[in-house]
Structure formats: C-alpha cells, structure tokens
Amino acid sequence: MTTAASDKAFKKAEHKRARRAVNAHDLTLDDALVSKEFGAPWGAPKDGKQWIDARRFPEIMRK
C-alpha cells in the first residue's frame, strides 16, 4: 500500500539523469556505466509501507 499516485515522474527523471550521465561519459577511456546506478526502485515515491490500524479498518485487515 502506498500514498503516492504514480512513479511516472520519478522514472522520467531517473531515465533523463541516466541518459545525461551516459552521454557525458567517455566510453573510450572507461567501461560503460551500470544501469543499476540509476533509478533505484527503493528510492521511488511508491516505495514504503503504511501503518493501518486494524481496529479502525477491520474490513481491510480481516485476515
């Protein structure tokens, strides 16, 4: 469960940051950048947990 509506803005910004870094990186001197350096899913706005009070919302926490 999350309070964020979408990851679209986060993904768009991270892909832009990755493209800029790859374009600025000199591939003749070094190896290519690792794609895992950008857009870590645990940094996204939809990541995280939400506390739900079982006494206030028994229909959600029925199991």
Rank of each mutant, 00 (worst) to 15 (best):
A40Q: 14
G39S: 03
V22Q: 00
L29Y: 04
R56D: 13
M61Y: 01
S6P: 00
M1I: 01
D53Y: 08
V34I: 01
N23I: 02
S35E: 11
K8Y: 10
S6M: 11
L33T: 00
K36W: 13
T3S: 10
N23G: 02
A40F: 11
K11G: 00
H15R: 15
G48L: 13
L33G: 02
G48R: 10
K12I: 07
V34T: 04
F10V: 00
H15W: 12
A9Q: 01
L29R: 11
D47K: 14
A5C: 03
P41F: 08
D26L: 08
T3K: 08
D26K: 11
K46D: 13
R55V: 05
D7A: 12
W51Q: 10
L27P: 05
H25T: 08
W51H: 08
R20A: 12
R62Q: 13
S35N: 01
F38E: 06
D47Y: 15
A44D: 05
N23A: 14
Q50N: 03
A21K: 07
R17K: 10
E59C: 07
A9Y: 00
A32F: 00
D7Y: 12
T3W: 08
R55L: 07
D30Y: 15
R17Y: 02
R55Q: 10
T3N: 07
T3V: 06
R56H: 11
